[in-house]
Amino acid sequence: MTPAQEPLLQVEHLRVELPTRRRTLVAIDDVSFSIMPGEVLGIVGESGAGKSVTGAAIIGLLEPPLRIAGGRVVLGGRRIDDLPYEQMRHIRGREIGAIFQDPLTSLNPLYTVGRQLVETIRTHLDLGPEAARERAIALLGEVGIAAAAQRIDHYPHQFSGGMRQRVVIALALAGNPRLIIADEPTTALDVSIQAQIIALLKRLGRDHGTAIMLVTHDMGVIAETAHRVAVMYAGRIVEIGPVRAIVDAPRHPYTVGLMDSIPRIGGVRGRLKQIDGAMPRLGEIPPGCAFNPRCPLVFERCRRERPELLPSASGAAACWRFAEEGARAADG
C-alpha cells in the first residue's frame, strides 16, 4: 500500500437509528473508519455492539425500522448511502460482496448451487449462459470444491456446512467485487473448518486484491487475519489501529479486557479473565463513556463526559485516561 492510495471505503460519522413507539434508539453512533484496497479490516465486539448493523448499513440492507440517520458511506469516491434501491442493487454483489454467518441457511434450498451462481454472475457480468457456467465452475474450484464440474449441479443440502460456506464465498465473489463484508463467516462452523475458511478468505483477498471487512466476536480470528482492527462497544468504535499494535498493547480498558479473555497456549495457567457485567442494551446506555460501569479504571470524568476517539501513536482509543495523560504530558 502506498500512502498516496485513496481509501476504497470511507465511513464517516455513520449514525443508525431504531425508531420505537416511545423514542428513537441509537444503534450506531458516530462511527468512522476507512478500508484501503486489498486491506483486511477486522470489526470486533460483543453481540449487540453494532458490528453487523454497520455492515448492513454499508450495503444498504438495514432491516426496517433501522435506518441511517446521519453520516456518509463513500465507496471509491462515490457516495452510496443515499442511492436509490435500484442503483444500490448494482453495487451489491458487483462492488461489495457479502458473506453471512450461517451457511446452512444462506443458500436457497430449491435451486442447485450452479443455478444460484449463474444467476448472480449474469446479474453483474455481461456473460452468456455457457460462459457464466464456466465461470461458476472456476469459482467453485477456486474456493476449494473438488470435482466442481459435477458438484455445480448439486443442491445445497448435498453439501456439508463447511462446503456450503465455500459456496457462499464463491457467490460473494461471483461479481468480482472490490470489497467483501464477511459477517461472522466462521461462527456457525466447526473449529477445525473455521481455520480453513479463514485461510481461504485471506488467500482469495490477496489473489483478487479484494478488501475484506471481517466482522467477528473472535479476537483470535482477527489477530490471524486482519491488517487493522476496530473494536466496537455499544454502537461506537472505542479503539482502532493496526492489529499488531492492538494485540500487543491494547489501550482502551475494554480492548484490554477482550485480549485478556482469549485463552493462550503456553500462557500462565489459571482462570481466564472475564469482563464483569454485560454490555448495556440499546436505550440503557449510561451517560459519559458507555463502558464506565464495567471499567476497572473508571474515574469521575468517565461518568460525566463521553470520550471521542483520541489519536495515539499507533491508532486511536476513546478513553479519558489518554486525554489526561496527554494533558499531563503537555503540562510537564
Binding site: 453495487i91 453471512f100 441457511t105 436457497n108 444467476e119 448472480t120 457462499v168
Partner: peptide, 15 residues
Amino acid sequence: DYIKFARARGLSNRA
C-alpha cells in the same frame, strides 16, 4: 437468510 443473501448479491427484486 437466503433471501437476505440473494438481495446482498444484488439480484433484481423480481428475481
